[in-house]
Design a protein around this nucleic acid. Structure first.
Length: 380
DNA sequence: AATTCGTGGGC
DNA sequence: TGCCCAAGAAT
């Protein structure tokens, strides 16, 4: 049975005809007005490619605009404080991208005289730039020829050539790279790169592929077998573990808030957040304010402050790619003005100042709740 | 080689 | 509602 499928799985199209059809389609139907497709430079293409990693176009567009306004050049980015870069990344996720972006800008300035190296191999040595992103930068912004393999291209190739299996598996991943490489043209590769992404994004979509309009339909094996939705193979389902944590919204008499910068490694690396007390066991009963403070005691102990009142806010679930976090917020109002702080990763900030920092998404959410909270309107 | 990194869109 | 997943890279 396996043999029969594989025997049938021949697409009968040469790489030359494949690229020709793709390029021809692109000139008629490809996207040409995305923000990073105007005034094309290696810098702008690089920023867009990093932002677009695992992130949808519609989400990226407003971030790209604000980012380019604040950091219009490679030099301006390299010279900026990394906290400034993180604040402009706040809400986009995968914050190692922002830290690597900053490091990469500084490396290009110091090691490459401020110009991106014009080869895929050298681009790949830079932080945050892997094989696919290097290929995209090299083709789109430098006119070189190189393969890419993003989510769109994976879907198009997996369907057209009926590549079985989940691309997370190394063997499947490698097979797709081989196919991508074999179909990469020597010329017009900038348009071919963009075309393949556009095909995946606009026609060969995950749920409702518009095969009638596809330039590759006549040789697409998945379409011939009516198995479009089986490609690419699905990731095996794994139950996400649930963690839980108390978020301490500590507000002094003058309205200032106590925030803490997270270490560069791990989740929300480098972002600012409320003091957080992880819990080992789930909360399954209503607790009194005193019991909540007991749970949070290890965090509170470290900062020696006098509590005036405690408000228990409704908890909510924040879901990451690999686990759930059940968040239990406590609004703790102090008797006294802000303490002096020794550790420099902690800061007392006016709410309006806090909103300028690189914040984790649930922190932004809680700050919005706080701004609607009685007595805080004038602070935001 | 398998995990670890966020967040929001779309259904 | 909850689930799958998106212009992937680093470890």
């Amino acid at each position: 049975m396996t043999y029969a499928v594989k025997a049938e799985a021949s697409s009968n199209i040469s790489p030359q005809e494949f690229t020709q059809r793709v390029l021809s389609w692109y000139h008629q139907h490809g996207r040409k007005d995305l923000p990073w497709q105007k005034n094309i430079t290696p810098y702008r293409v690089w920023i867009s490619e990093i932002m677009l990693q695992q992130t949808q176009v519609a989400t990226v567009i407003p971030y790209f605009a604000k980012f380019m306004k604040r950091f219009p050049s490679l030099k301006s980015l390299a010279e900026a404080p990394v906290d400034d870069v993180l604040s402009h990344w706040s809400g986009l996720g995968y914050y190692a991208r922002a830290r690597n972006l900053h490091k990469c800008a500084q490396t290009v300035v110091s090691e490459f005289a401020g110009r991106f190296p014009k080869s895929v191999d050298e681009l790949e040595t830079l932080p945050g730039i892997g094989r696919s992103t290097a290929g995209a930068i090299a083709t789109i912004s430098m006119g070189l020829s190189a393969p890419i393999l993003d989510g769109n291209v994976k879907r198009v190739l997996a369907r057209h050539f009926a590549v079985e299996g989940w691309p997370g598996k190394t063997a499947v991943h490698n097979a797709l790279w081989d196919i991508a490489e074999a179909h990469t043209p020597d010329s017009d590769c900038n348009h071919y790169t963009q075309a393949m992404m556009d095909l995946g994004a606009t026609l060969c979509t995950r749920t409702k592929p518009d095969c009638k309009r596809c330039p590759l339909v006549s040789t697409c094996i998945a379409e011939k077998q009516n198995r479009q939705l089986e490609f690419p193979g699905k990731k095996p389902k794994v139950d996400k573990p649930v963690k839980q944590s108390v978020f301490l919204i500590i507000q002094s008499k003058n309205g200032n808030l106590l925030l803490e910068q997270r270490p560069p490694q791990g989740i929300w690396g480098g972002l600012w957040s409320f003091l957080e007390q992880p819990l080992n066991t789930p909360i399954n009963a209503d607790l009194s304010p005193e019991e909540w403070l007991d749970l949070a005691h290890p965090q509170l102990q470290s900062i020696n402050l006098k509590i005036d009142s405690v408000e228990i806010w409704p908890g909510f679930r924040h879901t990451f790619s690999h686990y759930h976090l059940d968040i239990y917020p406590l609004l703790i109002t102090l008797e006294s003005p802000p303490n002096t702080i020794n550790e420099k990763q902690q800061q007392w900030l006016a709410p309006a100042e806090a909103l300028e920092l690189g914040l984790a998404a649930p922190v932004t959410k809680l700050l919005k709740r706080l701004s609607n909270h009685s007595g805080n309107l004038n602070l935001f």
